[in-house]
Design a protein around this nucleic acid. Structure first.
Length: 820
RNA sequence: GCGGAAGUGGCGGAAUGGCAGACGCGUUAGGUUCAGGACCUAAUAGGAACAAUCCUGUGUGGGUUCAAAUCCCACCUUCCGCACCA
């Protein structure tokens, strides 16, 4: 028997006909397992890099099915988005048509790879039955005050002609097209994710089975920092400037104040300044600098003195107020107190503009040392009035207390996380369900009027506004409140909104009356295993957690976190680069399947390396997988011809049988361990290879007497262990061996420790840390007996030369170490 | 700068503190074959001997230990994420 593609189709049909992956939520006699792979954006057809994702997910689902779990494995489409619209503009294909064309092609691909899903639960976020509930969530957020419209400086991509979320701006550039992002003051919709900042941070602790690196990225992104907000009064003025600092212990060293150019108080401050003209010019210049320039190394700190002074509330000294290009508007209060002696940036600035530098923190034990350098660490306070002599940590508390008592400042926790900007000036997305009424203002659409349908026949023009603006029937509506004339919101939602809750809709995909059935959702969720690319570590995973918590607060679900276990797989690269059409290094699966069969591709992709690491594609490696599969099939053909009989009750196994039994069972143990841990498919497969190699030795040597039952058990074990990885050939060979039922119903093999144990074992004899001999001993021997045998060995004697030894360490079954 | 991951043969990569290099690719030799391919068997870290053996080896330098790729300290390099966050 040789592996050919005809095997693939046969079994794919079989699984479909027998409903291996169909799940009926009413049958609940088994333990559930929800296996979820991040749903794809249907843009182009999939290559082997994408395939890794789905193959891993499928291997997990099939493994869990074999273990007897009741496995839910659904698939759907993240179907709204910019590429569809860009295609429409470029080629005139309606986004919907383009999207569904891609969906059917990818579906065909996934099916041809033998990836098992419950296709009855398929969803697409662009379908009104789905986005109706996305809009519903929007309304709920709006009701709770968590969706709001606000004018703010936002990131705008001139190429995509839309605003972007903070998270979608990478190094000052658009995540999608790398165009320089500009700042615009626009009125936009936001979700108040910052209300959940603390919970999103705290509950990371509940995510025990998430990769550490993803958790760290989320923590950093939320960016909690504790400090004090201090009100600085301005000399000869009523104005107070609020600053945030995490280093209130350095306040006695604050020698100037710095404000960002966009700070709302700047106008008032410079009202009667002599150099007002100059300052305004400076502000304009800074505001026109591209954001990415700020990030460049050596970006020069610049500023203008406002002519005004603030009062340091602790020293009562007058300190100059500056406007600076290095103060962020968006973080904290947009104004900071500057301590040049203990902050590198302030130091740089003070040196440049000759602002006094005052040391107030010293390294403990070196309080009197004077150094012309920044000291950013914590230490002991000096020159700090009553607080001198305290350590930074203690001083922070004491000073904060003092400030609170005297109404100077207040403790404050700040987060780096910003509210989520969700409106997009694009067409192919979920319409935001609100209307603008000249009388009532912003009015949400009534729940019963959902969905607000996205019009389909629209004209595409690449302008800074959604084509929806021109669709009169859409835009003109009536106010749900007063019944008067009103206009619909023409912005659509960020597609990350769509994907923030899709894993819940899989449970009740066709429910017309509610977002989902809470009972069913509480049964299936949280997702037991979530699999996807690490590129979603911040965006998608943070938003999904936020939505989950919101729905939890609504009482719709009873779990705080949606994904119990997360696995982020690595990329498959070719010639050291990510596969992409433009680079021309895409490995297409079709050719592989045609020539080597699907299981070859599946096996190779799982064997290519640790699944969480990037891996380099290698055609020779693929051929190795093909070789192995055929090696297995040949082995099965040989075993098949042996007339298999049961082992008699009192049968005593011979030496060879014991050896094969031991190998068989220890491989079961290893593979099971590898799959339970962090999905070590590569080592799991290598263990199975070892068993196959071992079996070849038995089958090919006519000298060896071996009971057919032992050989059959080994062969069946190989197939069952391989089944999650290479399901097609496993089913085929399983049938060859005379089984009528699917291999996936045969259960996961169990190992017996009694068989793994061997009578004679080989131990290493180590003399002074060097391996000198390998000796066979009986497994049950006590240390004395082993020592005796080792010391009696002539080679060992030669090494020892009768010298006395200090110590003997015996590690049972492994080694004996003699120290001279 | 902060945070994370990693550094092992020609290559991908294995090793609960216990025999470094499993398994695979590649390479070499032999078998089989009309031939090629495919397949089977064996060898394959480096060096000296070319046999049985010995020496050196997991980024660098120290340390702990009977025993370190693994633990500790210092450093180097690479990749990834965040980055003027006060």
């Amino acid at each position: 028997m040789k592996y050919s593609k005809s095997i693939d189709k046969k079994w794919q049909k079989f699984w479909e006909d027998t409903g291996l992956f169909k799940v009926d939520e009413k049958k609940r006699d088994k333990q559930k397992y929800y296996s979820l792979v991040m749903f794809p954006y249907p843009s182009s057809e999939l290559h082997v890099g994408h395939a890794r994702n789905y193959i891993i997910g499928d291997a997990v689902a099939r493994y869990k099915i074999m273990q007897g779990f009741y496995v839910l494995s659904p698939m759907g489409w993240d179907a709204f988005g910019l590429p569809a619209e860009n295609q429409a503009i470029k080629k005139g294909i309606p986004p919907k048509e383009w999207t569904f064309r891609n969906i059917s092609r990818i579906t065909e691909q996934l099916k041809s790879w033998g990836i098992g899903y419950d296709w009855n639960r398929e969803i697409a976020t662009c379908h009104p039955d789905y986005y109706r509930w996305t809009q519903w969530i929007f309304l709920k957020l709006y009701q709770k005050g968590l969706a709001y419209k606000s004018k703010a400086a936002v990131n705008f991509c001139p190429s995509c002609q839309t605003v972007l979320a903070n998270e979608q701006v990478i190094q000052g550039k658009c995540e999608r097209c790398s165009t320089e992002v500009v700042q615009k003051n626009l009125s936009q919709w936001f979700f108040k994710i910052t209300d959940y900042a603390q919970r999103l941070l705290e509950d990371i602790n509940l995510l025990e089975e998430w990769p550490e690196r993803v958790k760290t990225m989320q923590k950093n992104w939320i960016g909690r920092s504790e400090g004090v907000e201090i009100d600085f009064s301005v000399d000869n003025s009523d104005i107070k400037i609020r600053c945030f600092t995490t280093r209130v212990d350095t306040i006695f060293g604050a020698t100037f104040l710095a404000m960002s150019c966009e700070h709302s108080l700047v106008k008032d401050l410079i009202k009667d300044a002599g150099n007002k003209q100059q300052i305004t010019e400076f502000i304009d210049r800074v505001n026109n600098q591209p954001k990415s320039a700020r990030l460049l190394e050596g970006f020069e700190k610049e500023g203008m003195f406002t002519g005004k002074y603030a009062v340091n509330p602790m020293t009562k000294e007058k300190i100059p107020i500056w406007i600076c290009n290095y103060v962020l508007t968006e973080y904290g209060t947009g104004a900071i107190m500057c301590v040049p002696a203990h902050d590198k940036r302030d130091w740089e600035f003070a040196k440049k503009y000759n602002i006094p530098i005052k040391t107030v923190i010293a390294r403990p034990g070196r309080e009197n040392e004077v150094k012309d350098a920044v000291f950013e660490e914590e230490g002991i306070l000096v020159n700090s009035g009553n607080f001198s002599g305290l350590l930074s940590g203690e001083a922070k508390n004491k000073i904060a207390e003092y400030m609170e008592k005297n109404n100077i400042g207040k403790r404050k926790t700040n987060y780096r996380l910003r509210d989520w900007l969700i409106s997009r000036q694009r067409y192919w997305g979920v319409p935001i369900p609100v209307v603008y009424c000249s009388k009532c203002g912003i009015v949400p659409v009534k729940e019963e009027d959902l969905p607000v349908l996205l019009p389909e026949n629209v004209e595409f023009r690449p302008v800074g506004q959604s084509p929806l603006a021109d669709v009169e029937e859409f835009v003109n509506t009536t106010c749900p409140k007063c019944g008067g004339k009103a206009r619909r919101e023409i912005d659509t939602m960020d597609t990350f909104v769509d994907s923030s809750w899709y894993f819940l809709r899989y449970i009740s995909p066709r429910d017309k009356n509610r977002i989902f059935n809470s009972d069913d959702v509480n049964y299936w969720l949280p997702v037991d295993q979530y699999i996807g690319g690490v590129e979603h570590a911040i965006l998608h995973l943070m938003y999904a957690r936020f939505f989950n918590k919101f729905l939890y607060d609504l009482g719709l679900i009873n779990f705080k976190e949606p994904f119990k276990r997360l696995f982020t797989q690595g990329m498959i690269v070719k010639d050291g680069a990510k596969m992409s059409k433009s680079k021309g290094n895409v490995v297409a699966p079709d050719y592989i399947i045609e020539n080597y069969g699907v299981d070859t591709m599946r096996l190779y992709i799982l064997f290519i390396g640790p699944p969480d690491k990037d891996a380099e594609w290698n055609d020779e490696g693929l051929r190795g997988a093909y070789r192995f599969i055929n090696r297995v099939l040949r082995l099965i053909s040989m075993v098949k011809n042996i007339d298999s009989q049961d082992v008699p009750p009192e049968y005593s196994y011979n030496k060879d049988e014991k050896r094969l039994l031991s190998k068989t069972h220890s491989v079961i143990k290893e593979v099971s361990y590898d799959l339970e841990g962090n999905f070590q498919f590569n080592t799991a497969i290598s263990s199975i290879m070892e068993l196959v190699n071992e079996m070849y030795k038995f089958v090919q040597n006519p000298q060896i007497e071996i009971h057919s039952a032992v050989l059959t058990e080994a062969a069946e074990t190989v197939l069952r262990l391989l089944a999650p990885f290479t399901p097609h050939i496993s089913e085929e060979a399983w049938q060859e061996l005379g089984h009528k039922e699917s291999i996936f119903l045969s259960g996961w093999p169990k190992y017996n420790l009694e068989f793994i144990k061997q009578d004679t074992i080989e131990i290493a004899v180590i003399i002074n840390g060097k391996v000198r001999r390998h000796l066979k001993i009986e497994a049950g021997w006590p240390q004395e007996k082993v020592e005796e045998a080792v010391l009696a060995d002539s080679k060992v004697k030669a090494y020892l030369q009768g010298k006395p030894f200090k110590k003997v360490i015996y590690v049972p079954g492994k080694l004996i170490n003699i120290v001279l």
